[in-house]
Amino acid sequence: MSYDRYVAICKPLHYGTLMDSRACATMAAAAWATGVLYSLLHTANTFSLPLCQGNAINQFFCEIPQILKLSCSKSYLREVGLIVSCVPLELGCFVFIVVSYVQIFRAVLRMPSEQGRHKAFTTCLPHLAVLSLFLSTGMVAYLKLPSISSPLLDLVVAFLYSVVPPALNPLIYSMRNQELKDAVRKMMSWTNISRGRSLICLNK
């Protein structure tokens, strides 16, 4: 998404060639492939951990830090090593996003039109807000000290990084679509008309 916004704002004349269907399919396939590989490695590794403190976790999904708490052998170090080995990939993605948004904001601030700046900011800021929420809560979940851990905090943080961003993404991106906006306005006006007719019938 950050690359899409970067091309749209910084290189608008090349958007059609840089963000064609092939480029979109390649980026989507790369994201899916790395996500599936990352999940498979963690799943295979956590299944091999011996659990000596029961098999129930205080979470609504099998979160890795919660599973590691149940392990009583040194084999959990393999999982920690796997997490550390993935840091360069995650850091690379983070740096790419930051650089993209620095270029975007530099281009936006150079725009002579205030309306153009406002439109660019309203396009980018929702994505940046959701991304910041995901990264900050994810880092808290995986990097917080055991001394500040509590069941309620673990549940809230896990909910914020695993449920809220995926739920907000379709809403944020689809509300940029003019056809969807028109459909929502039409539905709202139809609802208001129906409500008005109901009130008239009740008054009669």
Rank of each mutant, 00 (worst) to 15 (best):
residue 54 G to L: 07
residue 54 G to S: 10
residue 44 A to W: 07
residue 39 S to I: 00
residue 79 E to I: 01
residue 58 N to A: 13
residue 28 A to I: 11
residue 78 R to Q: 13
residue 29 A to I: 02
residue 40 L to Q: 14
residue 62 C to N: 13
residue 67 I to Q: 09
residue 42 H to M: 15
residue 84 V to N: 11
residue 58 N to I: 01
residue 28 A to K: 14
residue 77 L to D: 11
residue 81 G to N: 10
residue 74 K to P: 01
residue 28 A to T: 10
residue 66 Q to R: 06
residue 86 C to Y: 08
residue 72 C to L: 05
residue 44 A to M: 12
residue 91 L to E: 04
residue 55 N to W: 09
residue 88 P to K: 01
residue 38 Y to W: 12
residue 66 Q to C: 07
residue 35 G to H: 02
residue 57 I to P: 06
residue 41 L to W: 05
residue 91 L to N: 03
residue 85 S to Y: 05
residue 79 E to M: 14
residue 69 K to Q: 15
residue 76 Y to N: 12
residue 81 G to T: 00
residue 57 I to D: 09
residue 67 I to H: 02
residue 72 C to Q: 05
residue 71 S to F: 00
residue 54 G to C: 11
residue 51 L to F: 09
residue 37 L to R: 09
residue 86 C to S: 09
residue 44 A to N: 08
residue 41 L to V: 05
residue 83 I to Y: 14
residue 51 L to R: 13
residue 56 A to R: 10
residue 60 F to L: 11
residue 90 E to V: 02
residue 57 I to N: 02
residue 91 L to S: 09
residue 31 A to G: 12
residue 41 L to Y: 04
residue 36 V to L: 15
residue 54 G to W: 08
residue 66 Q to N: 13
residue 76 Y to I: 04
residue 51 L to P: 03
residue 33 A to Q: 11
residue 75 S to K: 04
residue 38 Y to S: 11
residue 35 G to C: 04
residue 80 V to W: 08
residue 42 H to Y: 11
residue 36 V to K: 12
residue 44 A to C: 13
residue 50 P to L: 01
residue 41 L to Q: 07
residue 38 Y to V: 02
residue 75 S to A: 09
residue 27 M to P: 00
residue 85 S to A: 13
residue 73 S to I: 00
residue 38 Y to R: 10
residue 42 H to I: 04
residue 57 I to T: 05
residue 72 C to W: 02
residue 29 A to P: 00
residue 30 A to H: 12
residue 67 I to E: 00
residue 61 F to E: 14
residue 67 I to A: 04
residue 80 V to Q: 10
residue 44 A to T: 00
residue 80 V to E: 09
residue 59 Q to N: 14
residue 68 L to P: 03
residue 35 G to T: 02
residue 30 A to D: 15
residue 91 L to C: 11
residue 49 L to Q: 06
residue 44 A to S: 06
residue 32 W to S: 13
residue 29 A to N: 12
residue 71 S to P: 02
residue 62 C to G: 12
residue 81 G to Q: 01
residue 89 L to T: 00
residue 69 K to V: 03
residue 49 L to N: 04
residue 65 P to F: 03
residue 40 L to S: 07
residue 74 K to R: 10
residue 88 P to N: 03
residue 45 N to H: 05
residue 32 W to G: 06
residue 50 P to C: 05
residue 60 F to A: 10
residue 52 C to I: 04
residue 73 S to E: 13
residue 91 L to R: 00
residue 60 F to E: 13
residue 83 I to C: 15
residue 76 Y to V: 07
residue 66 Q to M: 11
residue 37 L to E: 14
residue 82 L to N: 08
residue 57 I to S: 07
residue 80 V to Y: 05
residue 42 H to G: 14
residue 77 L to S: 12
residue 48 S to F: 02
residue 36 V to S: 03
residue 39 S to P: 01
residue 59 Q to P: 00
residue 58 N to K: 14
residue 26 T to E: 15
residue 87 V to K: 01
residue 57 I to A: 08
residue 86 C to W: 09
residue 39 S to L: 07
residue 75 S to R: 05
residue 57 I to R: 06
residue 32 W to D: 14
